[in-house]
C-alpha cells in the first residue's frame, strides 16, 4: 500500500499548493481589490472544478448537473441564515451536508444508467433548477427572488481570500488523497472499463454513489461560499457559468489529475476576469468560443498536450 505515498506522486500537489501560497503573497503585496476579488472567484470555481474532476474526470461519467448543486448550497445557506440566523461556519457545514444529501438522492436513480443517459439526466437538473426552486419555494411560501444581504465570510477581503484558500487547499488534499487509495483505484478503473471491474467481482455502484454524493456536497459547499462571498443567493446561481468554468478548468488541468485544477483555474479565471474589463458584455460569447477551441485542441490538458 505504502509505495504510492512516497515522494514523487505527491509532488504535483505540493507544486499546486505552493502556487496558491505565492498568489496569496502577491495578492497582499499588490493590494488591488480587483485582483483579490478575481482570485477568490477563481478559487471558488477551482473548488467546483476539483469535485467535477474527482467525480466525472476520473470516472468518465459526464455530469452536467453542477449548477443545480451550486444553487442548493447558495439557497440553503440563504434560507438557513434568514430562518435560523445561523453563524457562517454552520451555514457552510449544513450546505455541505444538504449537498451530499441531494447528490445522493440524485445519484441513486441516475447512476444506474451510463454514458449519454446519465449525462442527459444530469443536464435536466440545472435546466429545471429554477423551476424546482420556484415550485418548492412557492409551496413553502418562501421568497422566490432570492436572498440579499447575507453575511460575508469576513469583513476584510484579505481574510476572505485566506479562508477560501485554506478551504481549497484542504479539499485538494483530501480529494487527491482519496484518488491514491484503493477507493480511488476503483474510480480510475471505472474510467477505463467499468464492466471489466464488475465481471471480476467488484460492485461499482456503491463507489460511484459515495463519490458523486461527496463531490456534489463539495459543489454545494462551493455554492454556499459563493453566496456568502457575494452576500446574495438567487436564481442566477443556477447559471451555466458554474458548469462551463469548472469543466474547462478540470479538463485543461488534466482530466483526473486533481492537482492540475488549481493552476489551470487561476490562469483561466484571471484571464477571463481581466478580459471582461475590456470587452464587457461580449465576454460570454468570446469566452465560450475560446472554451470550445481549448477543449477541442487541448483535450488532454494544457501541460500534457504541450508535452
Amino acid at each position: 500500500m505504502n509505495y504510492r505515498f512516497e515522494g514523487k506522486k505527491w509532488s504535483r500537489l505540493w507544486i499546486s499548493i505552493s502556487v496558491l501560497i505565492i498568489l496569496l503573497v502577491i495578492s497582499y503585496v499588490v493590494n488591488m481589490p480587483y485582483f483579490t476579488f478575481s482570485l477568490i472567484f477563481a478559487l471558488i470555481l477551482v473548488i467546483l472544478a476539483l469535485s467535477w474532476d474527482f467525480s466525472s474526470g476520473v470516472t468518465g461519467y459526464v455530469n452536467f448537473g453542477l449548477p443545480f448543486f451550486v444553487g442548493v448550497g447558495a439557497f440553503s445557506s440563504g434560507y438557513l441564515y434568514y430562518t435560523y440566523k445561523l453563524p457562517v461556519p454552520f451555514l457552510l457545514f449544513i450546505s455541505f451536508l444538504l449537498g451530499i444529501t441531494s447528490g445522493f438522492l440524485f445519484s441513486i436513480p441516475t447512476l444506474r444508467v451510463r454514458g449519454p443517459f446519465f449525462t442527459l439526466l444530469s443536464l435536466l437538473l440545472p435546466l429545471l433548477g429554477t423551476d424546482f426552486i420556484l415550485a418548492f419555494w412557492t409551496v413553502l411560501g418562501l421568497p422566490t427572488i432570492g436572498y440579499y444581504n447575507l453575511p460575508t465570510l469576513s469583513g476584510s477581503l484579505d481574510y476572505v481570500l485566506l479562508i477560501v484558500t485554506a478551504i481549497t487547499a484542504v479539499i485538494s488534499f483530501v480529494l487527491y488523497w482519496i484518488t491514491q487509495t484503493h477507493f480511488g483505484l476503483v474510480l480510475r478503473g471505472i474510467g477505463d472499463d467499468e464492466d471489466a471491474i464488475i465481471s471480476n467481482g467488484l460492485n461499482t455502484f456503491p463507489y460511484k454513489l459515495v463519490t458523486f454524493s461527496l463531490a456534489m456536497g463539495i459543489v454545494s459547499l462551493g455554492g454556499a461560499i459563493y453566496a456568502l462571498f457575494t452576500s446574495y443567493a438567487g436564481v442566477d446561481t443556477f447559471g451555466f457559468t458554474f458548469l462551463m468554468y469548472p469543466m474547462l478548468i478540470a479538463i485543461l488541468g488534466g482530466r483526473g489529475s486533481i492537482a492540475g485544477s488549481l493552476p489551470a483555474g487561476i490562469i483561466i479565471v484571471l484571464l477571463s476576469q481581466y478580459l471582461s474589463l475590456y470587452i464587457g458584455s461580449l465576454t460570454l460569447i468570446i469566452f465560450s468560443i475560446l472554451a470550445i477551441l481549448l477543449l477541442l485542441f487541448f483535450p488532454k490538458g494544457l501541460m500534457r498536450s504541450i508535452q
Binding site: H182, R188, D192, I197
Partner: peptide, 22 residues
C-alpha cells in the same frame, strides 16, 4: 475475456490491487 480488457491507465500491480478485497 477472450479479447483482453486491462485497465490501461493503471499499472500492472494496480490492475491486480483493484481486486485485492474480492
Amino acid at each position: 475475456f477472450q479479447v483482453v480488457r486491462p485497465f490501461v491507465s493503471l499499472t500492472v500491480r494496480e490492475n491486480l490491487e483493484l481486486f485485492s478485497r474480492v
